Amino acid sequence: MDTTDFLRYNRQMNLTEVGIDGQMKIKQAKVLVIGAGGLGSPVLTYLASCGVGTLGVIDFDTIEHHNLHRQILFTEADINKNKTNIAKQRIEQINPHIHFKTYDEKLTTDNAIAILGSFDIIVDGSDNFSTRYLVNDTCITLDKILVYGTILGFEGQVSIFNHCDKISLRDLFPEPPATEDVPNCSLNGVLGTFPGIIGTIMAHETLKVILDLPTLSGQLLILNTLTWEINKLKYARALPLREIF
């Protein structure tokens, strides 16, 4: 660890749970963020600030006016520009000492294994169920840890999948909901600060995974930011029938 690292990270290194060894773990970590939107923006910002050595993002969208109230990496000058390109510029301004990789493409069954395979931890900030289940199933195939978060209205959920207990999204929700039952986010709306709250929790959990600290593995954190009710549901791995009988 050089002087620059010490000067930048010494406040978090002062924590007993981090120290020099922990900061080296953060520096050596490789984290991919799915989506550079409302959740992805704070995740990328904090992981870069805290020194994650290799940080990646995949997103094929361009920046639109309606993104700006919650996607904090972007400004009005970025309208119609590619999200990953602008994210790279912003993150390199925040921390030029990390390696930042961008994938300006849609995540599909054709490219998921190749892209996710280069990283240790996957953080899912996507906004649709098809991508969430694709990411989950790819993490199972590749044995990658998945940091999961969703928001709707004023309620957010966060969990850690495929960690030490190997519990996955499908153990909690075996199948995605029917298309007609999925709420339309553009119609339901979102208060600009809310993705930042959940995204910051996701970034925090990611760092705890890296540091081998207790995480939300096997637990679903449910946070209602309208009433500030907080619940944690515990769940276990669903056993296939052949393991039950």
Results as ranks from 00 to 15, higher is better:
L7Y: 13
D21I: 07
K25E: 00
Q28T: 07
A29Y: 01
V31E: 03
V31L: 08
V33T: 01
G35N: 10
A36E: 14
P42Q: 07
V43M: 06
T45D: 13
L47V: 08
A48E: 04
L55A: 05
L55K: 02
D61G: 04
T62M: 13
E64N: 15
N67R: 05
L68R: 07
H69R: 06
L73W: 07
T75Q: 14
K81G: 09
N82Q: 11
T84R: 00
Q89V: 05
R90A: 02
E92Y: 08
F100R: 00
L107R: 12
T108Y: 09
D110L: 07
N111Q: 10
A112Q: 13
A112N: 08
I113F: 06
L116S: 14
G117P: 04
D124W: 01
S126L: 12
S130N: 13
S130E: 13
R132D: 04
I140L: 15
T141D: 01
D143N: 15
Y148Q: 10
L152A: 11
F154N: 08
I160F: 01
C164S: 15
I167N: 06
P176F: 10
V182S: 08
L191P: 02
T200L: 15
H204D: 14
H204K: 12
L211V: 00
T215G: 07
T215L: 11
L216W: 05
L221R: 08
T225N: 09
L226S: 10
E229Y: 13
Y235T: 06
L239E: 11
L241H: 08
E243W: 05
I244H: 00
F245P: 02
F245I: 13
F245R: 11
